[in-house]
Structures are given as structure tokens and as C-alpha cells.
């Protein structure tokens, strides 16, 4: 490849489009080219953000959402890794449960919401159940695949060293499945955030960032919706970053990959 484009040039190129869009946005809303109800000025959005943040305790909402997300994610991923380990290591459990699981996983995530709301209500419990389910499925699938692919030659070393079943699981199956588990956790984080938003839309009781967006729409307050959507994106982004660093940490034994 030719000499790599310098960092500065790449940065300049990267911010070109966003800046252009912001200018176009500002100009069209100020000049009345676009209906300000649909495209509020940047200033208006900023003011709304300030109002929501300071006067209406947006941070509190956000904290609620993140707590739900975290609780559901932790429950779902712990159960997921455990469940997948059982299925991967026990032939009997595998044959009994996996076909059913494979059928159930086909049901699209959000389709569970009505049933969950009947069984668990609209409160915190229902939301966390739903978020946990969202994390559970990708983590089970990836962990299971990863463990089934544990390298045979290392399993043989384990046999030569007389590993007991728990040593086999802890020393070979789980670590060799780690890249797959990391992928599962990454997907689990993304889906659990999606599910948190979904839960707050559809099980709309109590505070949360999803509630803010829905309220904005009901009041036809575009600026408010935009602030909410922006925060949704920001959290999504942070979770993604978090997943990457978690992955890098869990997989530090691997040769560095070219990304």
C-alpha cells in the first residue's frame, strides 16, 4: 500500500460530512427552509438538552436505564454462560434441550414483550427479565459454539495430565471458548441496550431514557426526541467501547489482530 494517509488528513475528512450536515441543518431551520417543528434549530436542541438535564433530571432517567441494562445484562450473561457450558459439556443435556432452545430462539426478541408483560407486569421486574433474555440468547449461542470447537489436541494434553471434569471446563473449554464468549458478550451488550429501550417503550412505567423519547413524541417536541435519541446513541457507543476493551482484556493472550 502507498504511504498511509496521515492521521490529520483522515481526521479532517472524517469531520467534513458531520460539519456539513450540521451547517445545512442550522441554515435550513433558521432560514425557514424546513419546518422548525420537524427540524428545530441547534440552539433549540441545546436548550432542550439543558432543560432536560438540569431541570428535569435527565441523569436520573439515564441512571435508571443503565441500572436496568446492567442488571439484566449481568443476569442474562451469567445464566447464559452457565447454561451453554452445561449444554456443551453434557451430551444428554445437549440432546434434551438444544433443539427446543433452537426453536425458541427463532422468536424475535421484541415479540416476547407482550407475554412478559402479562406474566411479569409492567414494572422493573418485567423489564429486567426482558433485558436478561436479550443478553441470554446470543451469549448461549456463542459460548456453546466456542466450547464445541475446543481444540482436540489440548483436550488430549488434559487427558495426559489427568484433568478432572472441572479442570477440563476451567482450563480448556472455557478459555478456548473465550473469543466466542467475548463475541457473545459483545452482542449481548448491544442487544440488552436495544432491549432496555424496547422495555421502556412498551412497558412504559417508571423513569428511563426511553420514556423521555416517547414523551417527546407524544408532545410533538422534536428537540426532546432528538436529545433522547442522541443519548441513546451515546450510550450505545460507550457500551460498544466497553465491549471492545473487555474483549481486549479477556483475549490478551491472543496475537494482536489487525483491525
Amino acid at each position: 500500500m502507498a504511504a498511509a494517509t496521515s492521521q490529520a488528513v483522515r481526521f479532517r475528512r472524517g469531520i467534513t460530512l458531520p460539519i456539513f450536515l450540521l451547517i445545512a441543518w442550522e441554515v435550513s431551520s433558521r432560514s425557514g427552509l424546513a419546518d422548525p417543528r420537524f427540524l428545530p434549530s441547534l440552539e433549540n436542541v441545546a436548550l432542550t438538552a439543558k432543560r432536560e438535564l438540569i431541570d428535569n433530571n435527565l441523569f436520573g432517567d439515564l441512571a435508571y436505564s443503565l441500572m436496568r441494562n446492567l442488571a439484566g445484562f449481568l443476569i442474562g450473561s451469567a445464566l447464559g454462560v452457565g447454561f451453554a457450558t452445561l449444554l456443551a459439556l453434557s451430551r444428554i443435556a445437549d440432546r434434551l434441550v438444544m433443539p427446543t432452545f433452537n426453536a425458541v430462539k427463532q422468536i424475535s426478541l421484541l415479540a416476547w414483550i407482550p407475554l412478559i408483560s402479562v406474566w411479569f407486569g409492567f414494572g422493573e421486574q418485567a423489564k429486567i427479565v426482558f433485558v436478561a433474555l436479550a443478553a441470554f440468547i446470543p451469549i448461549v449461542l456463542n459460548t456453546y459454539d466456542g466450547m464445541r470447537a475446543a481444540p482436540a489436541d489440548l483436550l488430549e494434553v488434559g487427558r495426559a495430565l489427568k484433568f478432572r471434569p472441572h479442570q477440563r471446563a476451567l482450563r480448556i473449554y472455557i478459555p478456548s471458548a473465550m473469543p466466542a464468549i467475548a463475541t457473545g458478550v459483545h452482542l449481548g451488550l448491544i442487544y440488552s441496550w436495544l432491549a432496555t429501550v424496547g422495555a421502556e417503550y412498551f412497558l412504559a412505567v417508571g423513569p428511563g431514557i426511553g420514556g423521555l423519547v416517547i414523551a417527546g413524541r407524544e408532545r410533538f417536541d422534536m428537540a426532546m426526541v432528538m436529545v433522547g435519541v442522541f443519548i441513546l446513541g451515546l450510550v450505545g457507543f460507550s457500551l460498544n467501547r466497553l465491549a471492545y476493551s473487555l474483549e481486549a482484556y479477556l483475549l490478551r493472550w491472543r496475537p494482536r489482530q489487525v483491525r
Binding site: W193, L194, V213, R217, M222, V225, V229, G233, F237
Partner: peptide, 13 residues
């Protein structure tokens, strides 16, 4: 980064 669900209310408007 923005979950698909996030876009729905915005697009509804």
C-alpha cells in the same frame, strides 16, 4: 450506534 428502536419515534414525527 443508535438502536433501531431509537429512530422510530423520531421518524414517526
Amino acid at each position: 450506534q443508535i438502536p433501531t428502536l431509537g429512530w422510530i419515534p423520531l421518524l414517526m414525527l
